[in-house]
């Protein structure tokens, strides 16, 4: 393998794409498990899955990979952002960027930063409490002969505040626009956008972005409005 590949602009693209797709795969798992709250069984199924994810050795190992992937995505994104700014040292006096591209495609760094802010709040609300500081609400629940963290009750508690629900909706909104560009962009970077595949990728990306963001957004809303029980 050529030495230059590690410094190459294309390697940075591949890294962005690979970590992006990895994070997308995480979103699928996360949204699927969270959607268990809609079984309306008092959070029993959801808590069981949450317990599995929190105790399974393979999942816990992958969690380290997840944080590593996220950090790599952020660091690579920042490097690209600053290199790209340096590539145009003198700005145009007059530009019409909307004539040739979408605002969200040009705003991946700012959308990513908004998602990062949301993630910090989100991790503080759930991950930190589950793994380190302990849950604030009804801490444990007995399901199928096992005591486990009552994440469902924690969700109910967190989403009683309107401003928290609004923050989560803004997070989902940022995620939607980030994915709308990011999904198809990842395939383009890996060289898979070709002929008819391009249309399939574009449609899948748009559909995925709408579906996953709406599914995530529906959770705090449903909790706040007492639509799940």
């Amino acid at each position: 393998m050529a030495k230059g590949i590690f410094k190459s602009s294309l390697t940075k693209k591949y890294t962005m794409a690979a970590t992006g797709l990895f994070l997308i795969s995480f979103l699928v798992v996360h949204a699927s498990i969270n959607a268990m709250i809609f079984f309306n069984d008092g959070g029993k199924t959801f808590n069981e899955w949450g317990h599995f994810m929190g105790t399974n050795l393979i999942v816990r190992t992958m969690e380290i990979g997840l944080f590593a992937g996220l950090i790599l995505h952020i660091v690579d994104g920042l490097v690209l952002f600053f290199q790209n700014r340096a590539a145009r040292p003198v700005a145009y006096a007059y530009e019409k960027p909307n004539a040739s591209s979408k605002w969200y495609s040009r705003s991946m760094a700012i959308l990513g930063t908004l998602i990062l802010f949301f993630l910090i709040i989100h991790l503080k609300d759930f991950w930190l409490k589950t793994r380190i500081t302990g849950l604030t609400g009804e801490k444990h629940v007995f399901v199928n002969g096992v005591w486990m963290e009552n994440l469902y009750s924690e969700m109910r508690l967190v989403f009683t505040e309107l401003w928290v629900v609004i923050v989560y909706l803004l997070g989902c909104f940022s995620l939607f626009w980030h994915l709308l560009h990011g999904f198809r962009s990842a395939f383009q970077s890996l060289g898979w956008n070709q002929g008819q595949y391009g249309q399939i990728i574009a449609f899948s990306g748009d559909a995925f972005s709408v579906f996953i963001s709406a599914l995530f957004a529906s959770m705090p809303v449903a909790m706040y409005l007492n639509l799940v029980h």
């Binding site: 940075k12 790209n84 591209s101 979408k102 495609s105 560009h181 198809r184």
Partner: peptide, 9 residues
């Protein structure tokens, strides 16, 4: 030159 981020402009 900068890095392509697949903006498509």
């Amino acid at each position: 030159f900068g890095n392509c981020s697949n903006i498509g402009a």
